[in-house]
């Protein structure tokens, strides 16, 4: 299996960006973005589809950490 070339990579990234934009607009509801999802899967290798799904979760988590900050979980209460 050969790696995607420059044009194929760009097509995949374009489809990914369209899908992500759609998901952002619809608050992560997959229903309205079904066509984008199909286009994304058609444009990218299966392994990349999985990778980008994880990547989006990570980027969103990172964004949340940066905007809302990190609230540490309450640990076991210490005897005072």
């Amino acid at each position: 299996m050969t790696a995607p070339n420059s044009a194929e990579r760009k097509a995949c990234w374009g489809a990914r960006d369209d899908l992500w934009k759609c998901l952002d607009e619809h608050k992560d509801q997959t229903g309205p973005c079904e066509n984008f999802q199909k286009q994304f899967e058609a444009s990218c290798p299966a392994q990349w589809v999985k990778y980008f799904a994880k990547r989006r979760d990570f980027l969103k988590y990172k964004d949340k950490m940066q905007t809302e900050g990190f609230t540490p979980a309450e640990g076991p209460k210490q005897k005072s």
Binding site: S6, C44, W48
Partner: peptide
């Protein structure tokens, strides 16, 4: 690696 999705390119 050449199959790298986004970071390497």
């Amino acid at each position: 690696f050449t199959h790298c999705p986004d970071i390497c390119p």
